[in-house]
Amino acid sequence: MTSTEPITAPPRPPKAVVPLIEVRDLVKHFGPVVALAGVSMTVNSGEVHCLLGDNGAGKSTLIKTLSGVHPPTSGDFVVDGRPVVFSSPREALDMGIATVYQDLAMIPLLSITRNFFMGREPVKGKLGPFSFMDMAHADRIARDEMHRIGIDVRDPQQAVGTLSGGERQCVAIARAVHFGAKVLILDEPTSALGVAQTSMVLKFVRQVRAKGVGVIFITHNVRHAYAIGDRFTVLNRGRTLGTYAKSQIKLDSLQTMMAGDKELQDLSEELGGTV
């Protein structure tokens, strides 16, 4: 177990609540490359768990393992108290683990409705091998869900490309929640967005959390993480440096921890801590 002192993860007195996801000593090798060298974390219902780390820390590998893209080399992966092994993203999805990728969330040329129901089309009636989509029903749900996010969509048949980046992220999140996600993995949902758009996404994530969904929020922007997170796990070189509750750690120390390298910390201070 790789950990620093204020750990809240595995060896904790058992509480009544079973974590939605628990991983212990997760290891992933790609040939000779060790991408994950023992990662442990838990995600509970109704919390936003931020996963912080610089490039190459293993964030992407970790979420791809959690979402069923890569099987882990070793380690325990427990969902709802049961150990699982996923062989495809679809299996993870069926267990309620949905991942929203930063740039792969939506297809710009397709309509909002078609995007929203992609892979989960509502069907009415069948003719031979073809099931007919219930377009009216799909449109109605898409419009309702958009309305709930607070996006004024004139026509759910309009292309997703007409939405802003923040709106697209929100639609992708709404889609995952609509289809029963219990754990939502958000991969850098705010990194490509402006300030107003970012706050829109963060606000929506808070809304989703209130519904009892567990959110894993991956970012390298400590400010965005601190604004929304309940707990923070810092990754470095494929290991967890520790998991901290918000009350246990200040923004500055989180920043310092993430920067890791001494020189970068100095540079960061010189620049006024804005890196």
């Binding site: 993203p89 679809r90 999805l93 991942t99 990728y101 792969l104 969330a105 939506m106 297809i107 710009p108 040329l109 397709l110 078609r114 992609m118 892979g119 989960r120």
Partner: peptide, 14 residues
């Protein structure tokens, strides 16, 4: 539509 729009995104949702 989904396969042509973005094969990866389509695969991700099954």
């Amino acid at each position: 539509f989904a396969s042509g729009g973005d094969a990866n995104a389509a695969r991700n949702v099954g």
